[in-house]
């Protein structure tokens, strides 16, 4: 079947099967490989994108369910001029990523959190990341980056 949706502000369509997952549509059909797949039990969050403004796991949603939806992926998160958005910049400033594999999902989760809760507490940040696994960072710097992106003072990375 043919489906159409808006991805990062651009209309996109493609031929899919019933079983085609949103993440497959994004990666394999649209070539947007920034969205990653880290598990097959819907737990790691590497595949997190926004559908109609809400954070979802694109590995746990059929592409056909996104018919007509507004989808945002990591490729759509930078500022219009291509520079890093506030959240992305905070991840770099605070060393919130190492291998980068969980990072797209982390950024998407962080953006969803800050939209609903512009000044979260540290505990709220950690709770919000319940469905996003990172094996590299121990989370410390991810949490710091998100708090910083919310405009709250955090100690800067080591001098």
């Amino acid at each position: 079947m043919k489906i159409t949706m808006t991805v990062n502000g651009r209309p996109c369509s493609g031929e899919v099967e019933g079983r085609t997952l949103l993440v497959q549509f994004l990666r394999d059909i649209q070539g947007l490989t920034g969205t990653h797949v880290g598990c097959d039990t819907s737990q790691c969050g590497a595949c997190t994108v926004h559908v109609d403004g809400r954070q979802v796991k694109s590995c746990t949603m059929f592409a056909a369910e996104a018919e007509g939806a507004e989808v945002t992926t990591i490729e759509g998160m930078a500022n219009a001029d291509g520079s890093l958005s506030v959240i992305q910049q905070a991840f770099q400033d605070h060393h919130g990523l190492q291998c980068g594999f969980c990072t797209p999902g982390m950024v998407m989760a962080a953006a969803a959190l800050l939209k609903d809760n512009p000044r979260p507490s540290e505990a709220e940040v950690r709770a919000h990341l319940e469905g996003n696994l990172c094996r590299c960072t121990g989370y410390h710097n991810i949490v710091k980056a998100i708090l910083a992106a919310s405009g709250q003072a955090v100690a800067v990375a080591a001098e």
Binding site: T33, I74, L84, F91, Q92, L97, G100, F101, P104, V107
Partner: peptide, 10 residues
């Protein structure tokens, strides 16, 4: 390297 990882271009 963060630039490419943060923008989905890894």
């Amino acid at each position: 390297e963060d630039i490419r990882f943060l923008t989905g271009r890894g």
